[in-house]
Design a protein around this nucleic acid. Structure first.
Lengths: 219, 219
DNA sequence: TGTTGTTAAAAAATCGATTATCTGTACTAG
DNA sequence: CTAGTACAGATAATCGATTTTTTAACAACA
């Protein structure tokens, strides 16, 4: 067991990046709001340098917009932007799913079943939303994981974060939620059957319905 | 003319970001090399804070890799990575071109012709390579500009930068270069004729041939 | 010989303070 | 009044120095 397990000691800047990414995606900041750097310093209990480094990363990632000499702001929720993000999700995740079904091995099948199961068992009570969200994200990421393209996965993650900003701000629609949850199970079935076409169609429909829910945030 | 023309005064961090992005794409840093922060301070004549902010942005953008507690390095040139980047370029630029041809208006046609012309006239002598590269980038970006998706354009830019790191390190292949140059003109023709399928096929072939040239950098 | 431990030097990350820029408000001239 | 200007307070960006962590060199030991 001589494997050198490098201590994954995060820097302050990395921790702030992760925390703020989470908070931004989950709507803890008002859309369009100007980011008060001094406020954040207290909120996250960090100094200025690592905080600014995190903000710079978030801006390059697309979760903040940076305006030279006048700081950072949270991007607005904009109908056109949501259309764009949802459309790109359809294209890219559809593409990735096709490839994943072609490449995925037995290990993938197991992980996919596991991820779907965990998601199904998780309850969606108000106090545990964050937990559910995490499992949901993990399910979708497992689904496309073996697509074989690091860049495709990277873009998909980025789009997911953008999309979730809208979805998490939108009011829930219980009856659609039920359909969406059922689709997760159906996606797994189709993936295991290696039915590329049907799986892709279903995933695109899944994204389309989520999009309609997310629309509630910027109407 | 009361239009307030906001001075686009860049911050030091932004200027360093732009300069380093250019230098990284054009191979001014050895692949795999560890970035010596103190060296860069002198090289770009800036202080530590703006420099680090620029490095953080570049890492989020994918032109540097960040390893916690041990700084930044220039990503290696890796055959698999190039395959991935080229493959994604084919997919995304193909998609974008189809949409651009459907959406592009007369103004686009003019700009496209202009961009192609400027590129054709530019000479590729060793001293003016940077200039040629800039026109080349601009041509490809004009080609897909009216695709209607901000995110798609963003991803394409990112992939272009990645791809060019490889291509600029590869030895030139004059006879392929001739074919590639000719294809630029043919792309314009097909785009103006609104021949979606043929244009897409040609663009994919164009990328494929460029890829074969770029391969010379990591064999 | 090879492994482990110690420590000095180097490099990265962070802090505290300073400088530059912007923003809003009050004031002035037309 | 209205447009423009000047100033003060607030905010952003940057600097210089400090702290923390890693790297490398070398010695002690099995």
């Amino acid at each position: 067991m001589g494997v050198l397990h490098r201590k994954e000691s995060a820097t302050t800047a990395s921790r702030v990046f992760d925390a703020m990414r989470h908070d931004l995606v989950n709507g803890r900041f008002a859309a369009g709001e100007k980011v008060a750097i001094n406020g954040l310093k207290e909120q996250y209990q960090v100094g200025l340098s690592p905080l600014r480094e995190a903000l710079n990363r978030l801006a390059a990632y697309g979760l903040l917009v940076q305006e030279n000499q006048r700081g950072f702001r949270v991007p607005r929720l904009d109908r056109r932007e949501l259309d764009d993000v949802a459309g790109m999700r359809r294209e890219l995740e559809g593409m990735a799913l096709e490839r994943a079904i072609l490449n995925g091995d037995a290990e993938w099948e197991s992980e996919l079943l596991a991820a779907a199961h965990r998601l199904k068992r998780a309850d969606l009570s108000p106090t545990k939303v964050d937990e559910w969200e995490q499992l949901h994200t993990r399910f979708h990421s497992t689904l496309v994981a073996p697509c074989g393209s690091v860049w495709l996965l990277r873009f998909i993650d980025q789009l997911h974060d953008q999309f979730d900003r809208y979805r998490r701000m939108a009011p829930g629609v219980p009856e659609v939620r039920k359909v969406l949850d059922a689709q997760h199970g159906e996606l797994v079935e189709l993936a295991l059957e290696r039915d590329v076409k049907a799986a892709r169609a279903l995933l695109e429909d899944h994204i389309e319905r989520s999009y309609e829910v997310a629309l509630g945030s910027c109407k």
